[in-house]
Amino acid sequence: MLKMESACKSYNHRGRTVHALREASVNIPEGDFVAVVGPSGSGKSTMLLVLGGMLSPSAGQVFLDGQPLYDLGPDQRAKVRRESIGFVFQTFNLVPYLTAMENIQVPLFLAGVDETAQKERAAVLLERVGLGDRLDHKPSELSVGQQQRVALARVLANDPAIILADEPTGNLDPDTSNDIIEFLIQMNAEGRTIVMVTHDPRAAQRAKRTLRLIEGGLNA
């Protein structure tokens, strides 16, 4: 389903070339749940962004269902993300001035869903993550755990086949972390492919398999 082939990514930082990815290759079949672990600065987040069509590699290619992702233009890749890929961020990245419900409506709006259907779908998803009574709360009025659950509900809005999660439990306490991992396991059980970058060994253990990234190189 998702395949990265000999991907390299380097960039300049204060006059020095930093190699975030070195000839990294991975094949992630449909329905897989992969945890990517490694020390800080090893290129985990870079790999996730490259897989999600957000960051073009300096060399190599990413294939989604056999289609070379970086042969597409930026707006076409945005369309692919809209339809097939969901991102979960460590810092949740909710839009601060929108309510929980409106945050979930955003990807639906981007996909061209009408407003009534957006609201119905958002309410169902918030109910699913246990926030049916927080529809009109803004992120600042929610706890960090609740914010991450809103982010999870948002990622499900367009029913993506692939979920890319960057340290989804990084800012959470153990109990809330466990809840979030449970949600990810549920999503995987529904047939979605999940790639999760994490520092947390307990979270990584819950995945079907673990990849280790060291200095931009992947080890199974």
Binding site: G52, M54, P74, D75, A78, K79, R81, R82, E83, F87, F89, N93, V95, P96, V106, P107, L110, A111, R154, N158
Partner: peptide
């Protein structure tokens, strides 16, 4: 950051 999030969610530059 908000712009980046919207792009990650599939918003085009237009």
């Amino acid at each position: 950051r908000e712009i980046g999030t919207l792009m990650a969610l599939g918003a085009g530059s237009s």
